[in-house]
């Protein structure tokens, strides 16, 4: 009677038509001790299934993402680079300006000294003018 029922359920089981409750009946029967001789090989299957269910995940559940670490390092590197370029550039500009200032001063100094020399020469012309006027007056 009961065996008949089990055989019917098995047939349904292999057609994937059994309900969860029916599969529970099969599981209970085949993991029990009173399995009929000609159905013995099925008990291997069902005892494997219940055995496989025992396996556990023993590793820790990770909550600290490792990937983000690298992400933040790259963000920091980019920030350092941007600051470096920004300040490096303004420093460079300052030095360039100083250099230009010095060059201009030098050029202006040269100009001034040359102008000075020029006016000295022009002083002689003045002498000539004065003498000329003296001559005109005397006439």
């Amino acid at each position: 009677m009961e065996l008949d029922n089990i055989e019917k359920l098995l047939e349904k089981y292999f057609e994937a038509e059994t309900t969860e409750a029916e599969e529970q009946i099969l599981r209970d029967y085949f993991t029990g001790d009173s399995v009929a001789e000609h159905l013995k090989e099925y008990s291997t299957m069902f005892s494997y299934f219940s055995h496989a269910k025992e396996e556990r995940f023993t590793k820790q559940v990770p909550l600290k993402p490792r990937v983000n670490y690298y992400k933040w390092i790259s963000v920091a590197a980019v920030a350092v680079m941007v600051f470096g370029i920004y300040f490096g550039k303004s420093y460079q500009e300052q030095r360039e300006a100083e250099y230009a200032y010095l060059q201009t001063r030098k050029a202006l100094g040269l100009l001034a000294s040359n102008l000075d020399r020029g006016t000295k020469k022009v002083a002689y012309l003045n002498e000539f003018q004065e003498t000329k006027e003296k001559i005109y007056k005397n006439n």
């Binding site: 089981y13 292999f14 057609e15 994937a16 038509e17 090989e41 099925y42 291997t44 299957m45």
Partner: peptide
């Protein structure tokens, strides 16, 4: 799902 399940169970039975 049912088709795949039925095939899987039958294959296991056959090989066993």
């Amino acid at each position: 799902v049912r088709v795949a399940l039925s095939r899987a169970r039958k294959t296991v039975r056959k090989k066993l």
